[in-house]
Each structure stands twice: as C-alpha cells, then as structure tokens.
C-alpha cells in the first residue's frame, strides 16, 4: 500500500515518479512538487525515483494567492 495525499492506493509495481504522476492524471508537471515521506524529490530525479511499498507520497501544488 502507498498513500498519495493521504489516500491509500494499492502498491502494484515499482514505477518511477513521472509514471506515477501520469497514472494519477496529474496533467501538468509544471508548478508541482512531489515529496516522498518528508523529502521533496527534485524534478530532475523523477525518472530515477521508483516508488516503494509503504511510500507516503505528497503532491504539492504551487499556489499564487496572497
């Protein structure tokens, strides 16, 4: 089991973060940060990070309000 923004998702196989985002239908990768547990994974490493069972994933969006 992995969680994405606190929602439990069945862990099927280890895919990279880029693939996970497209599976989650996060259309644009721009303005998005992704954290595994409490560490934000830099965008240039999204292809290299393969999710593991029990990963707690947080998708954070750039917001512009003020």
């Amino acid at each position: 089991m992995i969680t994405v923004n606190n929602k439990e998702i069945l862990f099927e196989k280890s895919i990279c973060l880029t693939e996970l985002l497209s599976k989650l239908e996060i259309k644009s990768e721009k303005g998005v940060a992704v954290a595994i547990h409490n560490n934000i994974i830099p965008k240039h490493q999204w292809n290299e990070y393969f999710i593991k069972d029990n990963d707690k994933i947080t998708v954070i969006r750039a917001t512009q309000g003020g």
């Binding site: 644009s28 721009k30 303005g31 940060a33 969006r61 750039a62």
Partner: peptide, 8 residues
C-alpha cells in the same frame, strides 16, 4: 528549487 517553473 521547489517549483522550477510556474504552472501553465
């Protein structure tokens, strides 16, 4: 470093 570029 957090958001390399703005959203569309």
């Amino acid at each position: 470093c957090l958001y390399p570029e703005p959203p569309d």
